[in-house]
Nucleic acid binder design. Structure first.
Length: 559
RNA sequence: UGCCCCGUGGUGUAAUGGUAGCACAGCAGACUCUGGAUCUGUAUGUCCGGGUUCGAAUCCUGGCGGGGCAGCCA
C-alpha cells in the first residue's frame, strides 16, 4: 500500500491553518481553464497542484471552464483540455462545470448589487472610461453616470441584457473607489455587451461577465474553499473579496502561486500560437512543443510529468526551472518501464567473414534489465549486420571503446568481433567493415573473455526499416524572451528536428502500435508517432537521449 | 517613480528563533555484455547595511535587486 506523500509548501500551511481554525471543514479546489487554447506543462503544474491538494486532504477538485468570453472560446478546446487532464491521470468525476452555467445567477447577483447601490450602468465610451481610470501613479476620476438612481440602473441593466444597446454603448460597473491605489478597485467593469453567440448558451445572452465578476462567484457557488491561481491575480484578490463580502455568500480563499517557466522553451499561449501559425512547428502537438499534447506525442509518460510537478514544488517567487529536471523525471520513469530494442540509426554494414553464409541464429535478449518480469526475446543474427556509423572510428582518440581497425568489441547479446578490414569507396568513405567473430564468446555461454566496449547491431537480412525523428530543444538559449531587442523566434534551434530515413530496426518493432514506447539501447527513448502512424511504415520520435558520458568526453576533446 | 508580491548553492526547494538539508545539474571514482541504470564521494548558498536576541535565513528597520498592475482578456 503506497501512502500519499505529504507535500509541504506555503499553500498547505495556509490550508492547515484554515482547517485548524475551522474556517473551512474540508478542502475543495478547482482547475479553471479558459477554453481558448491547448494546455501546456504550466497548466499541468496547476492541475497537479489542485487535484493533488484535494487528494492529499481527502477533498474534491472540480473542473470548471471559465467561458466568459465567447469571442475567444471554442468547443474544440474544451474537448482537448478534458482529454489532457484525463491523460495526466486526474478525475473530476461528476464535477464538470462551466462559468456559463452561472450566467443566470450572476445576473441576479448583479441586480442585488445594483439594489445595494454598489453597481451602476456607465454610458461612457471605451476611451472615456480608460481616460478616467487614471494610471498607477495618478488617481482616477468618477464617471458622470456614477450616481444614477437604483431604478434607472435597474432599467438600463435590463435593457443591456435585452440587447437594446450596441456593443460598447454601456457597461455595468462596480461602485468602489476611483482613487484606489489598486487599479482593480477603480470601479471595475462587471458586464460588457457582446453580440456574439456563446459555444454553450448560444444567443441567450449578449452581456457577458468579466473574469473578476465571474470567477469568485463561481468559486462560491461550487463551494470551493481554496481558489488557487497564478501570481498575476494577486492584485485582484481585494476585488475578489469585495464582491463576496457585498453579496454575503460563501467566501473561498484565493491563494496565488508562481507560474512555471521552463528553460529552452516559451510558455505563453500567444507565443506558442505564433510558432504554430508561422509554421515553425508541426501544430500544437508538435513533439517539441511544451503543450501536453506535444509532450504526449513526444513520448512523455503522465507519471513523469506528475513527478516533475511534485519535484518543482510551489512557491511565490518567479523561477526558471531547468528543463533537465523534466528530462530526468522522464528518464527515471522510462528506464523502469520501457521495453529495450536494438536500432541502428545511421547504418554501417559489417560482414563476418568467418561466419557461415546463409546461417541464422536466434539470440536471446532481455527486454528490460530493470524489470525481469518483462521477459526475454529472440533476436536474429547473421553474417551481415548493421552497426552504428558512430561506433566505428578509423583513427580514434584515446578513451574510444568502440570499433577501430584491428580492434575488438562485443556485439550486444552476441559475440566479440574484430575489425579485420575497412572497405572504402572511390572517395575514401568507409562503406563496409570486414570482421571476424569469436565463436567461443557467445553471450550466455559462460565465456569469460572481456572487451571494453559493447555495441548494438541489427541483422541486415532481418532488419525492419523505419523513419526516425530526432528531437532536440526548440530554442538555443535558456530564455528566448530575455533579449528584448530580438524576436524570440530568432533563437529557434535549427537542429531541433532531424529526420532520418532508412534506419534499421530490430524486426519485432514492425508490430509496434501508435504511442508505444521503447528504449533503443545506447541511444535513447523512442515512441511510435501517433500523428503519422501507418502500419508497415512507422515513424519513431526520439523522446530523449540516454545520459551520454561519451558525448561529454568527446565534447571536451573537441571532437 | 503609486500600490502589491518576491529575494537561500548553477537551477529548484526545505529549515517557521537553535547543526543551512534534499533533488536536478557539475566534478571525481566504483561497477557494468547499454559509455545506460546503480552506488560512493565532492565543490558551490541565506541580496546588502543596521537593530532585537545567549542565538537570526527566519523577527524589526533602511537600502538594493527582480516581478506584477493602467483590456469592455483571462
Amino acid at each position: 500500500m503506497e501512502e500519499i506523500k505529504k507535500k509541504e509548501n506555503f499553500i498547505t500551511e495556509i490550508i492547515d491553518k484554515d482547517l485548524a481554525e475551522g474556517r473551512y471543514a474540508k478542502v475543495h479546489t478547482r482547475f479553471p481553464p479558459e477554453p481558448n487554447g491547448y494546455l501546456h506543462i504550466g497548466h499541468a503544474k496547476s492541475i497537479c497542484l489542485n487535484f493533488g491538494l484535494a487528494e492529499q486532504y481527502g477533498g474534491k477538485c472540480n473542473l470548471r471552464f471559465d467561458d466568459t468570453n465567447p469571442a475567444k472560446e471554442e468547443e474544440e478546446y474544451v474537448e482537448s483540455i478534458k482529454e489532457d487532464i484525463k491523460w495526466l491521470g486526474f478525475d473530476w468525476e461528476d464535477r464538470l462545470y462551466y462559468a456559463s452555467d452561472y450566467f443566470d445567477i450572476l445576473y441576479d447577483y448583479a441586480v442585488k448589487l445594483i439594489k445595494k447601490g454598489k453597481a451602476y450602468v456607465d454610458s461612457l465610451s471605451y476611451e472615456e472610461i480608460k481616460e478616467l481610470r487614471g494610471t498607477p501613479t495618478r488617481p482616477g476620476k468618477e464617471s458622470p453616470y456614477r450616481n444614477r438612481s437604483v431604478e434607472e440602473n435597474l432599467k438600463l441593466f435590463e435593457k443591456m441584457k435585452n440587447g437594446e444597446f450596441k456593443e460598447g454603448e454601456c457597461v455595468l460597473r462596480a461602485k468602489i473607489d476611483m482613487s484606489s491605489p489598486n487599479l482593480n478597485l477603480r470601479d471595475p467593469i462587471m458586464y460588457r455587451i457582446k453580440h456574439v453567440p456563446h459555444h454553450r448558451t448560444g444567443n441567450k445572452w449578449c452581456i457577458y461577465p468579466m473574469y473578476d465578476w465571474a470567477h469568485g462567484q463561481s468559486d462560491s457557488i461550487e463551494g470551493i474553499t481554496h481558489s488557487i491561481c497564478t501570481l498575476e491575480f494577486e492584485n485582484h484578490r481585494p476585488l475578489y473579496n469585495w464582491f463576496l463580502e457585498q453579496l454575503e455568500i460563501h467566501h473561498p480563499r484565493q491563494i496565488e502561486f508562481a507560474r512555471l517557466n521552463l528553460s529552452y522553451t516559451v510558455m505563453s499561449k500567444r507565443k506558442l500560437l505564433e510558432l504554430v501559425e508561422g509554421g515553425y512547428v508541426d501544430g500544437w502537438d508538435d513533439p517539441r512543443m511544451p503543450t501536453i499534447s506535444g509532450l504526449r506525442r513526444r513520448g512523455f509518460t503522465p507519471e513523469s510529468i506528475r513527478n516533475f510537478a511534485d519535484r518543482i514544488g510551489v512557491a511565490k517567487r518567479d523561477t526558471m526551472i531547468d528543463v533537465a529536471l523534466l528530462e530526468f523525471s522522464l528518464r527515471e520513469d522510462l528506464n523502469k518501464k520501457a521495453q529495450r530494442a536494438m536500432a541502428v540509426l545511421n547504418p554501417l554494414k559489417i560482414t563476418l567473414i568467418n561466419y557461415p553464409e546463409g546461417k541464422t541464429e536466434e539470440l536471446e535478449a532481455v527486454n528490460n534489465p530493470e524489470d525481469p518480469s518483462m521477459g526475454r526475446r529472440k533476436v536474429p543474427f547473421g553474417r551481415e549486420l548493421f552497426i552504428e556509423r558512430t561506433d566505428f572510428m578509423e583513427d580514434p582518440p584515446k578513451k574510444f571503446f568502440r570499433l577501430k581497425p584491428g580492434g575488438e568489441v562485443r556485439l550486444r547479446y552476441a559475440y566479440i568481433i574484430k575489425c579485420e578490414e575497412v572497405v572504402k569507396d572511390s572517395e575514401g568513405n568507409v562503406v563496409e567493415l570486414k570482421c571476424t567473430y569469436d565463436p567461443e564468446t557467445k553471450s550466455g555461454s559462460g565465456s569469460t573473455r572481456k572487451v571494453k566496449g559493447t555495441i548494438h547491431w541489427v541483422s541486415a537480412n532481418h532488419a525492419f526499416e523505419a523513419e526516425v525523428h530526432l528531437y532536440d530543444r526548440l530554442f538555443t538559449v535558456e530564455d528566448p524572451l530575455a533579449d528584448k531587442e530580438r524576436d524570440f523566434k530568432e533563437f529557434i534551434n535549427p537542429n531541433s528536428l532531424v529526420k532520418l530515413k532508412g534506419c534499421k530496426l530490430e524486426p519485432f518493432l514492425k508490430n509496434a502500435k501508435a504511442g508505444d514506447r521503447f528504449q533503443f539501447e545506447r541511444l535513447g527513448y523512442f515512441c511510435v508517432d501517433s500523428k503519422y502512424f501507418k502500419k508497415g511504415k512507422l515513424v519513431f520520435n526520439r523522446t530523449a537521449t540516454l545520459r551520454d558520458t561519451w558525448a561529454k568526453i568527446a565534447k571536451k576533446q573537441n571532437l
